[in-house]
Structure formats: structure tokens, C-alpha cells
Design a binder for these strands. Structure first.
Lengths: 189, 189
DNA sequence: GGATGTGAAGTCGTTCACAGCT
DNA sequence: AGCTGTGAACGACTTCACATCC
């Protein structure tokens, strides 16, 4: 809406777009503070900034990518990360030489892929806060352990297996097929 | 659990694994029928089959992939689809010749990539029920329109934009960054 | 006048607790 | 004796409705 030059938006408009109730929108915002103006609505620009601040998106997040297979290299060249202030600042694999060609070809310039053994040092050096695991499922837990050792507190796991981490660390598992399962269910019933 | 040879499981065990209440597990199952044996628990093999049947996973799902970029070709070679009875039986792009090399290289054998104009015929011919959109956001809606024309009733959209379809069709949008946003929020607070 | 912010009412989902089977 | 299946109690979220303020 901001890009389209719209200045103000009401809870009713937002509700329609999100297919929810207008009171819901207001209550949800109210949980974090007061952002609107009575009789007017919400200023789009302000609301956008407020939401970004609440979600912690008003700054850059530095990430490491571990496991440069098909999915890994796809993520490396995923342009939308940049738009959203997410930045992959290091890439690791167990066999850097083997994968570097594939990555370079895609991005048009050589990309530095380091051996996993260098994860710990590099994570500190480059102030990495989020690790993205795109290894085979069999390696996911041990990679997670390395990330914990390196004190990388956020982990995004694309491997089809659940990962355990100590208190204070956060994991989100992304199961590709679970969205498909949902589709299959809806199409069946 | 089945692969590990476990025969029986209780609602309490399932609850622990899923970090929920045991009554929750039983109530959820009860919604679809009676699957357990009082005083014993649930037979793992039977439960697995029952759940697959409920979700509509007890058969093959034939899918088309549209947009063979980085993510698209990663999905083409995603082995876990097969394990779960999902099968990509056709691939489309606006420029088949341009992308065929990249795909072939990965899969080791040439893969047939058809021009989008052939989507409609091919969808019917190959009995496709699910379409996966991995095009740029700008093309997503028009590809969705083609899928609707071809009567492909399920759409999995990886493009970072929301798609509209008529009644009777189902869309699931997969927003990569929303999981990251969630991580960012949890790490901030 | 008109849309927000919010107590109160309403609805839905979760948990308890135990009867009913095995 | 033990665990499921389920009515009843509970708690949480959603929606209503309106006072409040621009």
C-alpha cells in the first residue's frame, strides 16, 4: 500500500485483505500499543514502521547458510532476502570445492564457500545470528550442534527432520511437504 | 516409530513428542473416528495408515511445476517428494531451451521442460491435480489463471505475492521470509 | 461524522476427570 | 490395571457494541 502511495488505511480495509474481523485487527494492534487515530485510521507509513519495529525487522539480520545443495544454492540467490534486510554473509559445506562451481555459475561471480570446520570462527567474526540448515536430514542435528557451539541463537531448518537445541536457542523447522499435505487434504474433502 | 519397529503408542507418548496435552491428541483423533484400543493404546502401523487415509495421502498426487528458476530446479530434484507419494510429472517455463541445461545437469539426465502454452493440454493428458508456481512474483497470477483454465484445482505458490482463484480452487502461499520474520521476532524478544 | 480502542458478551478450543472397554 | 473416548468445566480467543477522541 505504501508503494502504491496510499496514505491511510482503516482496520476494516486491513480486515478485508486478511479475511478476518475488523475488531481482530484493532485488538491485535492494541496488544502492542496505540497506532491509529480515532475517526481517521492508520497512517500507512507509520504503521509499517511500527510493525517492523515490533517484529524486529528494523535492522539487518546476518545469516549463515550450511549445506550448498540444490536448495541451498537456490536460497543463496534468493533476491527477496535482501529486500527484507536478511543477508547471507557466509556459506558452508563439507566439500567447498565441489559446490563452488555450481554456486558461482548461478550468481555470476565466485562465491566463497567455506569448510564447515570454519563455522565457529567465522560466525563470531561476521556476527552471525541466524543459521540456515539445508543439508541432508542425516547431518542436520550435528550442524545444529555446531551452530549452538558458535552461539548462533536462531536456526532455520529445511532438512526434513526435527532438531533439538538447548534453552535459549530457537529453531523453526520448515517442512516442505506439510503444505502439500494440507493441499492434499483440502482437495480430498 | 514404525521404522524403528515400535508396535504400540499411547496418547501420552504422542503428546510428549508433540508438546501438547494427551487429551488433545485423543480429541483430535476422535474428530475422525475411533482408532485406539482402551487399556492398550494405538497400533502404530494402523494409526499411520488411518492418518494417511484421512489426509488423502494414501495415493499418488500428480503435480506440475511452473517456472524453472533456482527454486524450481531445486524442487525438481527434491527426493523427499517421491517418498511421500508426490510426483512432478511435468515442468513448464516461458523459455524451455534456456533452462533445460541447468536442470539436466542436476538430475543427470535430460528433463523435458515444456513451453507454458502447453500447460492446458498437458495438464489434462497427464491428470495433473496440483500446480507448483515458482515463477517471479510478476508472473504468478497469470500462471495461476492458466492453471485454473486447465482445471488444476490445487495450487502451491512460492512466489512472494498473494494469488486469487475462483471458488472450488485451493491456493496455499508459501512465504519464505515469514518463517524468518518469526525467528527475528523471537530473537528480539 | 467516523474510526479507533476496549470492556463485556459470545464462541470456540483445550483440559479435566471419569465411565467404559480390553 | 491401564488407556481410550467423551461429557462437563474451564480458559482463551473472537466478536460485539459503544464510549472516546480526532
Amino acid at each position: 500500500m505504501d508503494e502504491r502511495g496510499e496514505r491511510v488505511v482503516s482496520s476494516a480495509q486491513l480486515a478485508t485483505r486478511c479475511s478476518v474481523n475488523a475488531a481482530q485487527v484493532r485488538k491485535d494492534f492494541a496488544y502492542f500499543g496505540e497506532f491509529g487515530i480515532r475517526g481517521v485510521g492508520y497512517y500507512v507509513k507509520d504503521l509499517l514502521q511500527d510493525i517492523k519495529r515490533i517484529l524486529g525487522l528494523n535492522r539487518e539480520w546476518r545469516m549463515a547458510l550450511i549445506g550448498i545443495g540444490n536448495l541451498g544454492s537456490a536460497l543463496l540467490s534468493y533476491k527477496d532476502f535482501l529486500k527484507q534486510n536478511y543477508k547471507i554473509v557466509a556459506a558452508f559445506d563439507i566439500n567447498p570445492l565441489k559446490v563452488i562451481g555450481r554456486v558461482s555459475e548461478k550468481l555470476g561471480k565466485p562465491v566463497e564457500v567455506l569448510h564447515i570446520s570454519r563455522l565457529r570462527d567465522t560466525a563470531k567474526e561476521r556476527k552471525i545470528e541466524i543459521g540456515i540448515i539445508t543439508t541432508p536430514a542425516s547431518e542436520a542435528q550435528s550442524v545444529a550442534n555446531l551452530l549452538v557451539e558458535a552461539e548462533v541463537r536462531g536456526i532455520l531448518n529445511f532438512a526434513p527432520t526435527q532438531i533439538k537445541v538447548p534453552e535459549g536457542y530457537v529453531v523453526r523447522d520448515v517442512l516442505f511437504t506439510s503444505v502439500l499435505d494440507n493441499l492434499a487434504y483440502l482437495l480430498t474433502n
